[in-house]
């Protein structure tokens, strides 16, 4: 199977479980192939967990789920050193982060300290514990979920931390007929459990390497940079997109091109990805330091900005 066919097969596989959301599936694959992490921001019960689960299932990768609560400690994620009486030595018991795909549920429910331990692991792809480093196995991808509706007792992630996520997605409610289908297939089994793995971990890594070879034309890079620059100059934003953000957009665009079976990027790739890759990296200008969330607003601002930038012809 060529890479294009493989990717299509995975999409179809997941689509058997997540009904009517091809876009979300495509984007999560993009995040995977771009070696990025995914932040799903949505109300509970729309299939965030199922998405992560089925992605992991189709890939023949290890999958761990961490439910974030206010009493979760960093060691609950990273792992602990335990004194082994037989060996008279400390032994490192790896935490759930040592998996290929990690689902971090309700990430904003835990304390900033715990959050940062996860985020460090995400950016470094390794764990430092007691002066030892433990590399994480590639592919490594964190799918974090966050519930925007609740604020009681939550610790929203700061922008600098959000930057670690490649993209922020919403799943949204399914269309009525799709929802009906979900209800109809009342299976006792978790739907994701039925999926068969299509790729091994090493094949995923190979695909990730292919992303780097996707060609991006010079004028397209210019286009991408002018989008980024416009966020820095915009009156609406108090914080524009960083260089890391530009890099992320470029990588995501390449991954999207690969997912769509192309070996080169198009302006469409950049344009389509800009809102979901950039919207969580910016700070909407506010008065008196009042932090305000509104996913939609940030996305809309990015979209408006992109609409002012001429596409290279």
């Amino acid at each position: 199977m060529t890479s294009t066919e493989t990717i299509r097969a995975i999409q179809e596989n997941i689509a058997r479980v997540i009904k009517g959301k091809p876009h979300v599936i495509e984007m999560s694959l993009v995040a995977l192939l771009a070696r990025g992490h995914l932040l799903l921001e949505d109300v509970p019960g729309v299939g965030k967990t199922t998405l992560a689960h089925s992605l992991a299932r189709s890939l023949d990768c290890s999958f761990k789920r961490i439910q974030f609560t206010s009493d979760l400690l960093p060691s609950d994620i990273v792992g602990v050193s335990i004194f082994n009486r037989q060996k008279q030595a400390f032994e490192f018991i790896p935490g759930p982060i040592f998996a290929n795909i990690v689902l971090a549920d309700e990430i904003n429910r835990t304390t900033p300290k715990t959050q940062s331990s996860l985020l460090e692991a995400m950016s470094e792809a390794q764990i430092s514990f007691d002066n030892k480093t433990y590399p994480l196995n590639p592919p490594f991808m964190v799918i974090a979920t966050q519930n925007p509706a609740e604020y009681h007792g939550t610790f929203p992630l700061p922008e600098s931390q959000l930057d670690r996520f490649l993209m922020r997605l919403r799943i949204g409610y399914p269309a009525p007929e799709e929802e009906k289908k979900v209800l109809e297939r009342a299976s006792s089994l978790h739907p994701a459990e039925e999926l068969l793995p299509l790729l091994t971990a090493s094949e995923v890594v190979q695909l990730q390497d292919q992303v780097d070879k996707v060609f991006m034309e010079e004028s397209l890079t210019e286009y991408l940079l002018s989008i980024v620059r416009s966020t820095r100059q915009s009156e609406l934003l108090s914080l524009g997109v960083s260089t890391r953000g530009a890099l992320a957009l470029s990588r995501a665009a390449k991954a999207l091109a690969l997912v769509r079976g192309r070996s080169y990027c198009l302006p469409d790739d950049v344009k389509e990805l800009a809102p979901i890759v950039l919207s969580h990296r910016i700070m909407v200008a506010r008065q008196a330091g009042l932090h305000q969330r509104s996913f939609e607003q940030a996305e809309r601002i990015i979209r408006d900005l992109v609409d002012t930038i001429p596409v290279p012809v």
Partner: peptide, 19 residues
């Protein structure tokens, strides 16, 4: 289109953006 912050404060300047 108009972009306006959700909250304004008395006597403190606010930037309103018109697209």
């Amino acid at each position: 289109r108009r972009h306006i912050p959700d909250l304004l404060f008395l006597n403190s300047p606010v930037t309103i953006v018109l697209a």
